Simulated assay, not measured.
Amino acid sequence: MTSAGTVLVTGATATTGSRTAARLVAAGHRVRAAGRRGAALPGAQPVRFDWYDPATHDAALTGTDRVHLVPPVGDPDPAAVMLPFLERARALGVRRAVLLSSSAVPAGGPAVGQVHQVLPSLFDEWAVLRPSWFMQNFTGAHLHATTIRATGTFATATGDGRVAYVDADDIAAVALHALTDTDAPNTDLVLTGPEALTHDDVATILTEVTGRPVTHHRLTVAEVRHRLTESAGIPPQFAALLADMDHAIAEGAENRTTDTVHRLTGHPPNDLRTAMARETGRGL
């Protein structure tokens, strides 16, 4: 790994952004932790940053040579704000950009897929992290986690479809390498856990780990869309995108595993039991 330069981490208080910033600091790299009020993370320089306020962009970018991009949450068209930012980043001397996307969204696909498609034309050094769904969706503030805590249930329209959930700690470990290895990946990296599970399997594992019954309820795509809009307050366009992803899972789109975590970090990805046992101490 190289130790030169400064890394700007957007979304530095988010699930993967906070973990990535912490790993960068621990490895001895200079880090700017970006958030709307600055992100107070040990060892990092807090910097105020808002995707929707271009007046915050130059100060965050000046003196930065690498940037970790966590897209604005819930925006169905993040390219509208991200692409002008990335053009400005290149003009100010950023040489490497690592984008957090999704295994469900290819280059040129909806939402962040539009940013993925353009990224290689903006930077000679780049990577797109395309993780499967996060194991941390069952902890913290995610809708699945909050309904599990409140009712012992969670609901999807995935049917018998399988997902190789990935630990956010493993995503951050890959991000560290993508940002700091001497040679940039210059490709997209699909990140998964070690096994593809149905959501009934997930419920069984959560029951075993927590000692509390957890049940997976099966909904239709329309029911999921309504639930996300009415109960979670998610904008209809983005709720429809998420519901359609459930349908894609039901059709087998996420039934795969990759060796990317092991290949880039040297350690196998954590399984769901391991991650949930660790996260239980954080308030599952």
Rank of each mutant, 00 (worst) to 15 (best):
residue 29 H to D: 00
residue 64 T to F: 09
residue 67 V to C: 09
residue 38 G to H: 06
residue 37 R to I: 06
residue 67 V to E: 04
residue 29 H to S: 11
residue 49 F to K: 09
residue 68 H to D: 07
residue 68 H to P: 07
residue 38 G to E: 01
residue 64 T to M: 13
residue 52 Y to P: 12
residue 44 A to V: 09
residue 35 G to N: 04
residue 45 Q to F: 03
residue 62 T to A: 15
residue 51 W to Q: 09
residue 66 R to L: 12
residue 29 H to W: 02
residue 58 D to T: 07
residue 72 P to T: 05
residue 54 P to Q: 11
residue 71 P to Y: 13
residue 52 Y to I: 02
residue 32 R to S: 07
residue 70 V to P: 06
residue 69 L to T: 05
residue 70 V to C: 14
residue 32 R to L: 10
residue 49 F to W: 02
residue 48 R to S: 08
residue 38 G to P: 06
residue 35 G to V: 05
residue 39 A to D: 01
residue 69 L to V: 13
residue 53 D to A: 15
residue 52 Y to E: 13
residue 54 P to G: 00
residue 62 T to Q: 15
residue 30 R to Q: 13
residue 45 Q to T: 15
residue 43 G to V: 10
residue 54 P to M: 04
residue 63 G to V: 14
residue 35 G to D: 02
residue 58 D to C: 14
residue 31 V to F: 07
residue 56 T to N: 10
residue 43 G to T: 08
residue 42 P to S: 14
residue 28 G to F: 04
residue 51 W to D: 06
residue 28 G to I: 10
residue 56 T to A: 15
residue 52 Y to C: 11
residue 65 D to R: 11
residue 28 G to P: 08
residue 38 G to R: 12
residue 35 G to T: 02
residue 55 A to N: 11
residue 58 D to V: 02
residue 65 D to S: 13
residue 53 D to S: 04
residue 31 V to L: 08
residue 45 Q to G: 03
residue 42 P to K: 07
residue 59 A to K: 12
residue 57 H to S: 12
